Amino acid sequence: LTVEVTLDGRRIELHGLSEEAHEILRHALERNADDKEIKKILEELRK
């Protein structure tokens, strides 16, 4: 799955996400998580 997010003013596409990762990010974006929170989530998903 692919998600497009804006971090530090740049639009980035995240490819190859699992369903779980996609859901976690989608929920964070829906509640307008800040860049710091999104980065933390991405860091966790990379593990």
Rank of each mutant, 00 (worst) to 15 (best):
A28W: 06
L14W: 01
S18A: 04
G9W: 00
H22S: 13
E23S: 11
H15N: 09
L14P: 01
L45V: 08
E23K: 11
K47C: 14
L7N: 03
E37L: 08
E13G: 02
E13T: 13
T6Q: 11
L29S: 03
L14M: 06
E23Q: 10
E4L: 08
K39C: 07
E23A: 12
E30L: 09
I24Q: 11
E13H: 10
K39E: 09
L25H: 01
E23Y: 02
E37Y: 07
L29E: 04
L45D: 02
L1R: 13
E44Q: 14
E4P: 00
D8G: 09
G16S: 06
H27C: 08
E4Q: 02
H27S: 15
S18N: 07
E30N: 07
E13N: 06
L45R: 01
K40M: 13
R26T: 14
E44F: 10
E44P: 01
E30S: 07
S18W: 06
A33W: 07
K39F: 12
I41H: 01
L42C: 04
I38E: 00
D8T: 01
D35F: 07
T2M: 09
E20N: 09
L1P: 06
I12W: 03
V3I: 15
E37D: 07
L7K: 04
L42M: 08
H22K: 12
T6P: 03
E23C: 07
N32S: 12
T2S: 14
T6V: 15
L7I: 15
G16E: 07
A21R: 02
H22C: 10
L25A: 00
K47S: 13
I24M: 13
S18M: 04
E30C: 08
A21F: 12
L14E: 02
K40R: 14
L25S: 00
V5W: 00
L29W: 04
R11A: 08
A21L: 10
K40Q: 12
H15L: 07
V5I: 15
L29H: 03
R26E: 09
E13R: 08
E19V: 13
A21S: 08
L14G: 02
E13K: 08
K39D: 06
R46M: 15
E4Y: 02
V5M: 03
L1E: 06
T2N: 07
L29D: 03
L42Q: 01
H15P: 05
R11Y: 09
R10L: 15
E44D: 13
E37G: 03
L17V: 06
R31E: 09
V5L: 07
H15G: 09
T6M: 13
D35H: 08
K36R: 13
E30V: 05
V5E: 03
V3F: 14
G16Q: 06
D34E: 09
L25G: 00
I41A: 01
A33P: 07
V3K: 03
H15S: 11
